[in-house]
Design a protein around this nucleic acid. Structure first.
Lengths: 229, 229
DNA sequence: CAGTATGGTGACGGTTTAGTGACAGGGGAA
DNA sequence: TTCCCCTGTCACTAAACCGTCACCATACTG
């Protein structure tokens, strides 16, 4: 769910893009001109900018330059929209610092693919290093968990949960913190749901000989600990 | 520091490219025609070829074919330079074995980015050596796959897919990563298409006695693994 | 000791994700 | 040209997973 600033003066195209973005799970911010765009850029700091190259008044290239000149907005990737065959724009655009371009007319699918590609390129994946505690080993790269050699099968959520515990061991985490870190800060689920997943995780670990790895701290939350108490 | 053969007859463009390459830390070899190119290819075995599609005399596509036909040069990646909007060339070029294309006119930045991308993609599998895992053998040179001696017949896409899996075994790859690595960055296909090709690949492998070689990691992607779990 | 709050647990529907068969279009070969 | 292979997409099916609840067990309180 990325917030994407759409700088486009033609209302119908603006609408088309915004609908496409919403449908692909993004959050469009609309700007019909450079001024609005600049304001929204400062206020919202979007994750990506879709920039029409031909804007009334200040042109897209100027906007791109100012965007790249500002410390705060420098890192925001730009995808520019150009008319078909306007190769010159393409060149200057990429030189100004656009990350990709889409030529009009474009298909919603292409647009979505470009956005996805740019966002993916932008975000280096999380820590990929294997973690090992007390004979229990979790490897994000292979997505495998083993307990003293024996495979442990986990669902996606249990996997993330265990990963979080192993990278933050010995520390007590409230249900709210776990929801934030493992589920994501925007989802709304009951806190008790954590209990259920803890149970599932414990079940899988006990089947592999790891008892009491995850401890309950009554009134506070849960903790992963190798010290038995 | 990669050695890059630039096959381009127009001196000014040749110059532009060479300068760009030098500035981005590469080592350009210049060839104004196909003959020189072939000679340099044999003598220097560069890490990458930048190939103008429109050459005097022998055309770029012929050169690409000969390059792919020769044992020694088969593994060298090709980026082709095409005129704007020449969609047909793009398609035939990619099918002949080009790894990417850049349309003229291009920006130095774009060129550098493409080169980096291709080299990065190339690096882990720089070897065109045969790969063998768990009795399954894939030979890029002969384009053949055998399972304990018995031939396995695969379509082109399944072959590349399997090759990628075998050179990146045990690791989980998302559908997006597979599309990038096997299909190419600039191709727009549905992510579910990966599923279908996985299925076709599995079908071919199972017919040869290799069950469960390619595993599904729910929510994440696929993995080739010889460890059964 | 009863009363209350907190966590454990099993089960259940709905939703999401992957598997699968079919199909139309395109390209190359004959 | 026709034929055949390959490809990407779709619709449908199958399965895994998730969140929630109800109920039980345990711990704390006075």
């Amino acid at each position: 769910m990325a917030r994407i600033l759409v700088v486009e003066d033609e209302p119908s195209i603006q609408e088309l893009i915004s609908v496409t973005l919403t449908r692909t799970g993004h959050d469009p911010l609309r700007a019909p001109d450079a001024e609005t765009a600049l304001r929204l850029l400062q206020a919202e700091l979007p994750d990506l900018v879709l920039l029409d190259w031909m804007l009334p008044g200040q042109s897209g290239i100027d906007l791109a330059r100012r965007l790249r000149g500002d410390e705060r907005t420098r890192g925001v990737p730009i995808i520019m929209l150009t008319a078909r065959g306007d190769e010159q724009s393409k060149v200057t655009g990429l030189e100004t610092g656009a990350d990709d371009y889409v030529t009009k007319p474009f298909s919603p699918r292409e647009l979505a693919a470009r956005i996805k590609a740019v966002l993916r390129r932008q975000k280096p994946q999380a820590t990929e290093d294997p973690v090992e505690i007390d004979g229990l080993r979790l490897d994000p790269a292979t997505h495998r968990v083993t307990a003293r050699g024996a495979a442990v099968v986990l669902g996606p959520t249990e996997f993330r949960l265990l990963h979080f515990f192993m990278t933050h061991a010995e520390r007590v985490h409230s249900r709210a913190q776990l929801l934030d870190s493992v589920w994501g800060d925007h989802v709304f689920v009951e806190e008790r749901t954590v209990d259920v997943h803890i149970r599932r995780l414990r079940g899988a670990l006990e089947a592999s000989g790891h008892d009491a790895l995850i401890q309950t701290v009554r009134g506070s939350g849960y903790r992963l600990s190798c010290q038995k108490d």
